[in-house]
């Protein structure tokens, strides 16, 4: 393949669902997401992929958050699939109920998706999510991770990277953004439940995202896909750079792309053109304090260590198996 554009090769063999005219546009125009919203794009890509792979037979449960607020505010619903919003922390459980209802109606061909942001997934909804995994309920849970509570004005969440500035982790003399040694890896938590399928994906690699969602939607049991979706507002970069930032996160090792089956790492995507973490961090205002006059190199080392650990742990080096 000489290029990795969305249309794939000239033969269109590797064309993405997003490049097709026939795509469902599960999240259609007129939604109220900010300009350049990564989550809006991530959600359309993921749900379209699921829609395509399940022959249109999908239902979606949505946790409270940006995605829910911008997509479905009376009198305008941007969804083109059956969609249910209940609460912030219960999407996984609601989806369990949907799946159970479909099961008892003998409609198991209708596939169930629960989706939410990082707060709804890894923080407030953790209990319900863990319960769903524990029971191996037939639900695909998709987390759109923009690494903070964006809907409420960019406060720290459990997936906020160490040292990132948020409205509740403002850098001051003795504080450099979010505290070191904080943050949780929800995909790893999912893996610990030994569910059939866990994957990470990014809007910086739509081909990969579509492949993983398409695969996951038809697996019976619990599936978890964690999608990296940069937020121009919360991260402080130009609205046009969303995809680029997502791509840089992959390239520097801070967002590893991998798949796990029954709790074990199955495949990972080797980084093709490795870059330094600085190349990823510098364009984002949330990390600006790491580069100023008074910045300490130790701070960057903390993030570099995470990237290096990812590269080693998920085998993202050139020798990786993909």
């Amino acid at each position: 393949m000489s290029s990795s554009t969305l249309s794939g090769e000239s033969s269109k063999k590797n064309s993405t669902i997003q490049s097709r005219r026939s795509r469902n546009n599960s999240l259609t125009s007129g939604h109220r997401a900010c300009q350049g919203c990564g989550e809006a794009l991530g959600a359309r890509c993921a749900i379209d992929a699921a829609y395509h792979a399940a022959a249109g037979k999908i239902t979606v449960v949505n946790a409270t958050g940006c995605l829910e607020v911008f997509s479905c505010s009376f009198p305008e619903n941007a969804w083109n699939v059956p969609w249910l919003h209940s609460l912030f922390g219960n999407a996984a459980a609601v989806a369990t109920g949907v799946a159970a209802a479909l099961h008892s109606q003998g409609k198991e061909d209708v596939r169930v998706i629960a989706q939410g942001g990082d707060g709804a997934t890894g923080d407030i909804g953790m209990g319900c999510l863990s319960g769903m995994f524990d029971r191996n309920d037939d639900v695909l849970y998709i987390c759109y991770d923009n690494q903070a509570y964006m809907n409420t004005g960019v406060q720290r969440s459990g997936t906020t990277p160490p040292l990132a500035r948020t409205a509740t982790t403002v850098p001051h003399k003795n504080y450099a953004g979010s505290d070191p040694q904080t943050g949780k890896n929800v995909a790893q938590i999912a893996m610990a439940h030994e569910i059939p399928y866990v994957a990470t994906a990014s809007i910086g690699n739509i081909q990969d995202l579509e492949k993983k969602v398409s695969k996951a939607i038809n697996i019976r049991g619990s599936k978890y896909v964690h999608v990296h979706v940069p937020c121009p507002l919360g991260w402080g970069y130009d609205t046009a750079e969303t995809i680029k930032i997502a791509r840089l996160a992959i390239q520097c090792g801070l967002f590893p792309l991998f798949e796990a089956e029954y709790g074990k790492l199955a495949r990972s995507t080797a980084i093709e053109d490795p870059i330094s973490i600085e190349d990823y961090l510098k364009p984002q205002k949330r990390f600006a304090h790491l580069f100023g006059k008074n910045a300490s190199s130790e701070s960057l080392d903390i993030l570099r260590k995470i990237a290096n650990s990812n590269i080693e742990k998920y085998r993202l080096g050139k020798t990786a198996d993909d």
Partner: peptide, 12 residues
Amino acid sequence: HCDNCYGYCPDN
């Protein structure tokens, strides 16, 4: 006709 613009537009 790489379709990047079409596929990446968050607003369809």
